[in-house]
């Protein structure tokens, strides 16, 4: 190859600049590492901004009964117990600290009357648990971490003379390959969208934070970036993927016109009197009602009658060992 390729060296390369990528970059820089962040879009434009509902963390600000154990239970139930228990546990335990940390970066969540972070109810969560900022919580997360990275770059400028001495953002750049040395990560290879020029970043550690795969489906709420880059490059580098059959579909997203395709229609439309009709104008849900009942019965049928030994007390969740 005659082409001259820019080659740079870092300790950690983070692929993706959504919430996970920026969190990882901040942590790695705070551990003293030189970090490159590579993102397909402009800095601060990740798919994370689409998240409206909020961030679940059992802070107990609205209902003091909430705690990590309740959050853990809800998460496992939601995942129908296919979750890795340790991930669900770590997540439930550490989420409040991560939310509070964002406040120290300047995040402004909605407040309770006492001035704490407000928490809202959401499907599957036993107590009001979602820290939120109106319906733009994802944007608040991204902006907050983007600004935290800027503040770290300002410290680096002060201490080392350059904004980019420890964190450099490669915006509008796509990684096409993970490079390896035997079974070890050695770096990444990609191109700059703007110029089409290639670059190679040498690094012993790579964090994939590249988001999801929604763009493989015609109707999706995901943005163009969601082409499964991280999943695919991990596979190609010898990593394994888990639970790939589990994909969340919302049954009622707009399919037409294209300007709103993928935008989700809330359940409340049906609650408020909306009905489903087919191309013949018929309300077809009636035909399926018996099926629905059957499904419910089957569901219940799997449970066993509760048999207890003599004198055994019905257990309560509160009695459980931590």
């Amino acid at each position: 190859m005659s082409e001259e390729i820019e080659r740079l060296s870092y300790d950690v390369v983070v692929v993706g600049a959504g919430g996970a990528g920026l969190s990882a970059a901040i942590a790695a820089r705070q551990a003293g590492k030189r970090v490159a962040i590579v993102c397909k879009s402009l800095f601060g434009k990740a798919h994370t901004v689409m998240a409206e509902g909020g961030a679940a963390a059992a802070m107990g600000n609205v209902n003091p009964n909430d705690n990590w154990e309740v959050h853990f239970r809800d998460t496992m139930r939601g995942g129908k117990f296919l979750n890795h228990w340790r991930m669900a546990e770590v997540h439930a335990k550490e989420a409040p600290d991560r939310i509070w940390e964002l406040e120290t970066y300047g995040a402004l969540f909605d407040r309770t009357p006492e001035g704490k972070i407000s928490q809202r109810n959401f499907g599957g969560h036993e107590y009001p648990r979602l820290a939120h900022v109106g319906d733009r919580t994802g944007l608040e997360l991204i902006r907050t971490m983007q600004q935290k990275i800027v503040s770290l770059q300002q410290e680096d400028k002060r201490d080392h003379g350059s904004y980019e001495s420890h964190i450099r953002v490669f915006a509008e750049a796509t990684i096409t390959r993970l490079l390896t040395d035997g079974n070890k990560i050695a770096g990444v290879f990609g191109y700059q969208r703007k110029t089409g020029e290639f670059f190679c970043l040498d690094a012993p550690a790579v964090v994939l934070a590249a988001g999801g795969i929604g763009k493989s489906f015609k109707v999706t709420s995901n943005s163009w970036e969601y082409t499964g880059d991280g999943h695919a490059m991990a596979l190609l580098a010898g990593a394994t993927l888990i639970n790939m059959e589990c994909i969340q579909f919302h049954p009622t997203g707009m399919v037409w016109p294209p300007s709103v395709r993928g935008i989700l229609v809330t359940e409340s439309v049906r609650g408020d009197g909306g009905v489903l009709k087919n191309s013949e104008g018929k309300r077809f849900m009636f035909n399926y009602v018996p099926e629905v009942f059957k499904a419910v019965r089957d569901h219940r049928g799997r449970g066993r009658p509760l048999v207890r030994g003599p004198g055994q007390q019905p257990a309560s969740p509160g009695a459980a060992a931590p």
Partner: peptide, 19 residues
């Protein structure tokens, strides 16, 4: 743009602000 400067006297989780 100078970044947000956190209040030195408050620890994470102690921030109280009115809506």
């Amino acid at each position: 743009m100078p970044a947000f400067q956190p209040p030195a006297e408050l620890k994470p989780g102690e921030y109280r602000m009115a809506q």
